[in-house]
Simulated assay, not measured.
Amino acid sequence: MTERMRVGIVGASGYGGVQLVRLLLDHPNLEIVYVGGKSSAGQSFSELYPHLDQQFDLMIEPIDLDVIADRCEAVFLALPNGLACDLAPALIAKGCKVLDLSADYRFQNLDTYTAWYKKDREDRDLAETAVYGLPELYRSSIQESNLIGCAGCYCTASLLAIAPLLKQGLILPETAIIDAKSGASGGGRQAKVGMLLAEAGNSFGAYGVAGAHRHTPEIEEVCSELAGHPMRIQFTPHLIPMVRGILATVYATLRDPGLVREDLLTIYKAFYRSSPFVKILPAGVYPQTKWAAGTNVCYIGVAVDNRTDRVIVLSAIDNLIKGQSGQAVQCLNIMMGWPETLGLPTLAFYP
């Protein structure tokens, strides 16, 4: 049996951390040798998540970069925004591969990051070497990198939906609108009044309206690169009273009003022909979050409204898997030259 790669998780106590534990335990080529945290240090992982007791009971340790680098060949940073950039430079210098699940290494332009996340950075040279962790768009760059800024959950669903339209010049870019809904797990595990059942249950509302959500500049940066010129995107997120899942709906005016749905389906299938986790649905079938729950799959449906000359693209993912931890594992698979799908679930529990 080939020796497995030793990996660690920093920030293991949150939803991203526990999803990583589940995925890494099922991965044939990886072994978890370290889990670290600040507030949870000193507890066994099964104290936080008793359902894992029979399979995983490592002690959560203080965050010690020397210990991490000594044990781990690759490290997943599942931390709040603004913390990974304080740890990654030392880990990279010590020879670790780093996969950051926060926003710290997602931006090519660090001035944009600073403006939105209010964090001054001292690692600009390193940040310039980071690769945006959306495999379907940046697979070859990920393969050559040791530092990945994994794409955000809303961004993943939105960008996979809109990328073929921008790359092929099929829409008028200024008309693009993204309307997206997320389950409550997207807000993390820390207690927040707005996430209480009494607040969020039996209700449905928008937040981060009028370009106020932090994923807006991330979406815009990648869209601008795809389109070949600066873009502004109208992005509106919503909280929907379910645990997990994102449904993103993209609206845009077609550059050629003669295009029909079958044309676009052909284009989408060709664009994602080498992307095993993107499933383009047949004509008239539109994705549901339940289909993606617990998997690393993105389901995409396409429609054309000939009355308005608009294309409508719908994208469904699990925000904690394809939108977070599964995406990170997918990136590591690519970095290591392993099959992209290795250790990642593709079939949801249903119903």
Rank of each mutant, 00 (worst) to 15 (best):
A180E: 13
S145A: 06
A127H: 10
P173K: 09
A163F: 07
R189F: 08
P164N: 03
S185D: 06
L196F: 10
A157G: 01
I162W: 04
A163P: 06
T175N: 07
I142K: 01
I142H: 05
A161G: 14
T129M: 14
Q190M: 15
G186Y: 02
T156Y: 02
I148T: 07
A161S: 12
R121P: 03
L147D: 10
G149M: 07
C153G: 01
E144W: 00
A180Q: 07
K181P: 09
L134T: 09
Q190F: 15
S141L: 12
S185A: 09
A191W: 15
R139Y: 13
A180W: 09
L196K: 09
G183D: 03
T156V: 12
I177T: 15
S185R: 02
S185I: 00
A127K: 03
E199S: 07
A198G: 10
D123E: 06
A198P: 00
L172F: 13
R124T: 05
P164Q: 04
A127R: 04
L196R: 07
G194S: 13
C155D: 02
Q190D: 15
Q190S: 15
C155R: 00
I177S: 15
G187P: 01
E144N: 09
A180R: 09
A161Y: 08
A127Y: 07
M195A: 14
P173D: 07
L147Y: 09
A198C: 03
C150L: 06
Q190P: 09
Y132Q: 11
S182E: 12
S145H: 01
T129I: 10
E144R: 09
R189T: 07
V131R: 05
K181N: 14
Y138V: 00
L159S: 08
S141I: 03
V131S: 03
A130S: 14
V131W: 03
G188C: 00
L197T: 10
G169R: 03
I171L: 12
Q168P: 03
Q143L: 00
D123N: 02
I148S: 04
C155Y: 00
L166I: 02
N146K: 13
L197P: 06
D120K: 13
L160Y: 05
K192L: 15
L170G: 08
Y132P: 08
D125F: 13
G149F: 05
Y132H: 13
A151I: 08
Y132G: 08
I178L: 12
K181F: 11
L134Y: 13
T175P: 11
N146S: 13
E174L: 11
G152D: 03
T175L: 09
L126K: 11
S158D: 05
L165N: 00
A157E: 02
N146Y: 11
E122T: 02
V193L: 12
I178G: 12
Y154L: 04
Y132A: 08
V193W: 12
I142T: 01
C150Q: 09
A127E: 02
